[in-house]
C-alpha cells in the first residue's frame, strides 16, 4: 500500500527539514523515519521508498540506514512493547526475574509477541538508568527501581487496560 504523510506529519516533516542545511537533506533521514513509524506503527518498504523520494536519495540508502538501528522497526510490535534491560547493572539487580515474570504472566519470551498482540518483549542493552535498576521501558516510558511486586502490578495494569487497535495494526 503506498505511503503518504498525514497532514500533521507533513507539518512536522517541514520542521525537521529546517534543522539541516538544504544541501544535506539526508541528515533528516532518521527523524523522517520516526515520523513514518509514528504514523504507521513500523517501517514498510513503501514507507521507506516514500522517504527516499522526499529526501532525494536512493531507496537503498534509506534501507541501509533503517536496518542499522534497533529503534527503527521493520515489523509491528505488541501494543505494549516490554523492553527489559539485561545489561550488567540490571542483571545484578534481578532483571532475569523480570524476564521470568513476563514468561509466566504474558506467555512470551524475548523476541516474541502474545497472540492477542497486546504484549511483545525484547531484551535491550543499557538504558542509562543503571542507578535505578532494574529498568523496563514500556513503549517510550521508563519504569525504574522495579521489584517483582511492582512489576507484577504493572503487568496486571497493562493486561487490564482498555486498548483500541494494537499499535501498528
Amino acid at each position: 500500500m503506498p505511503f503518504e504523510f498525514s497532514k500533521e506529519m507533513e507539518a512536522r516533516f517541514a520542521k525537521v527539514l529546517e534543522k539541516y542545511p538544504a544541501e544535506h537533506k539526508k541528515a533528516a533521514l532518521i527523524p523522517a523515519l520516526y515520523l513514518v513509524q509514528e504514523q504507521h506503527g513500523y517501517l514498510t518498504i513503501d514507507g521507506m521508498k516514500y522517504i527516499a523520494g522526499r529526501l532525494d536519495i536512493s531507496a537503498s540508502e534509506v534501507l541501509n540506514t533503517a536496518t542499522f538501528y534497533t529503534l527503527l522497526r521493520k515489523e509491528p510490535h505488541g501494543r505494549f512493547h516490554l523492553q527489559v534491560c539485561t545489561n550488567v547493572s540490571c542483571f545484578l539487580r534481578g532483571s532475569d526475574d523480570l524476564i521470568r515474570m513476563i514468561r509466566d504472566k504474558c506467555g512470551i519470551g524475548p523476541g516474541e509477541m502474545s497472540d492477542d498482540r497486546r504484549f511483545s518483549c525484547e531484551e535491550v542493552q543499557c538504558l542509562a538508568a543503571c542507578g535505578t535498576a532494574p529498568v523496563v521501558q514500556v513503549n517510550w516510558d521508563y519504569h525504574e527501581k522495579l521489584t517483582t511486586e511492582s512489576f507484577s502490578t504493572l503487568l496486571e495494569e497493562l493486561q487490564s487496560r482498555e486498548i483500541s487497535a494494537p499499535e501498528g495494526a
Binding site: 534543522k19 539541516y20 541528515a27 532518521i30 527523524p31 520516526y34 538501528y69 534497533t70 529503534l71 527503527l72
Partner: peptide, 10 residues
C-alpha cells in the same frame, strides 16, 4: 541549537 534523535545503536 537543534536536537537530533539517535535510533538505538551504542
Amino acid at each position: 541549537i537543534y536536537q537530533h534523535p539517535g535510533a538505538g545503536a551504542y
